[in-house]
């Protein structure tokens, strides 16, 4: 069973996503901040990270993605954010500044989320 680490400070979003993922057979680990996320990443070695952008700081997700890629180039990161709606921000994958494998705007339909996750896991 693939292990997925969700790093997001929005508890409602996390609980909704958790239901979707567990009912589809994934193991879910939750972290509500990037510090907690890094610790759980080291400890539990997830197969994929679902990462928010704005948490304690508005750029936490970007910084965490950079740090994750320093630890493991191969663990896929799917960035999920509403930064576009909140801050009007339009960003792109970029090997240095936003080193994620894919990203999606929140809110996201469960079937699309599952499709993306399966694709990144090579299923």
């Amino acid at each position: 069973m693939a292990k997925i680490l969700i790093v997001d400070d929005d508890v409602d979003f996390v609980s909704a996503v958790k239901i979707v993922l567990t009912s589809n057979g994934f193991d879910v680990i939750v972290a509500n901040s990037s510090q907690e996320g890094m610790a759980k990443f080291d400890e539990l070695q997830p197969d994929l990270v679902l990462l928010d952008v704005m948490m304690d700081q508005p750029d936490d997700g970007f910084v965490m993605a950079q740090n994750l890629k320093k630890k493991s180039k191969t663990t896929p990161i799917l960035m999920l954010t509403s930064i576009g709606q909140v801050a009007g921000m339009d960003f792109d994958k970029d090997s240095e500044m936003v080193p994620v494998d894919d990203f999606e705007q929140k809110p996201i339909m469960p079937n699309i989320l599952l499709e993306k996750i399966n694709k990144l896991l090579g299923k």
């Binding site: 750029d59 970007f62 921000m89 970029d94």
Partner: peptide, 15 residues
């Protein structure tokens, strides 16, 4: 405002 955050956000922005 923290300078690193400002630069990181602008660095991540598309353009």
């Amino acid at each position: 405002f923290p300078t690193a955050i400002k630069w990181q956000l602008a660095g991540a922005a598309k353009g």
